[in-house]
Amino acid sequence: MKNLKLKAARAEKNLSQQELAEQIGVSRQTIGLIELGKYNPTLQLCLAICKALSKTLDDLFWED
């Protein structure tokens, strides 16, 4: 399932996939795949993404 919350939070911060990827130390493809729901990130990476986007785990990764 696509992670639209992550995409929206990234857009809110005016960051491209490349910029977010560089901030948290992964490749652009990994961010793309997380947004597409094709890669299941570790908790460590989830936390890094949350910190970079100033969001909580609930905000970005909790499915309603």
């Binding site: 130390g25 493809q29 990130p41 570790t42 990476l45």
Partner: peptide
């Protein structure tokens, strides 16, 4: 010193 620093790794890769 830079020789001893490991490059950040992409967990998916």
């Amino acid at each position: 010193m830079k020789w001893f620093q490991s490059n950040p790794k992409d967990e998916r890769v």
